[in-house]
């Protein structure tokens, strides 16, 4: 086994995903077979190889620090599941 059910449960917690009992079973089996497949990368010696995060050489892109137009409060809140005049509302955090 590459991954246990308990580990899958832990990862789900990290990912903020509530998984049902059947989902935990299915994902444990499927992740196990996918992780067994990716093990093949260990056949390659990668000592001294520089990791690639982007395929195209990148430099930091700078621009002048000047304020620009923004979309505004009304448009920003338009898709919010719950909001007051100018705030996103969430369930109470502190008891």
């Amino acid at each position: 086994m590459k991954i246990t059910r308990a580990e899958v449960e832990h990862v789900a917690k990290l990912a903020r995903l509530e998984l049902s009992e059947p989902e935990l079973d299915t994902f444990t089996a499927q992740m196990d077979s996918i992780l067994a497949y990716v093990e093949k990368l260990n056949a390659l010696d990668t000592d001294g190889i520089v990791p690639t995060s982007h395929a195209v050489p990148m430099e930091n892109a700078f621009r002048p620090d000047q304020p620009k137009d923004s979309i505004g409060v009304e448009a920003a809140l338009a898709n919010a599941p719950q909001h007051t005049d100018s705030f996103f509302q969430v369930p109470k955090v502190i008891e």
Partner: peptide, 19 residues
């Protein structure tokens, strides 16, 4: 579920709302 997109109506508290 905070700024846009689906929000669960069955959640108890913030973290539970995310999950």
């Amino acid at each position: 579920g905070v700024r846009f997109g689906h929000r669960s109506e069955n959640a108890k508290g913030l973290i539970d709302m995310f999950a």
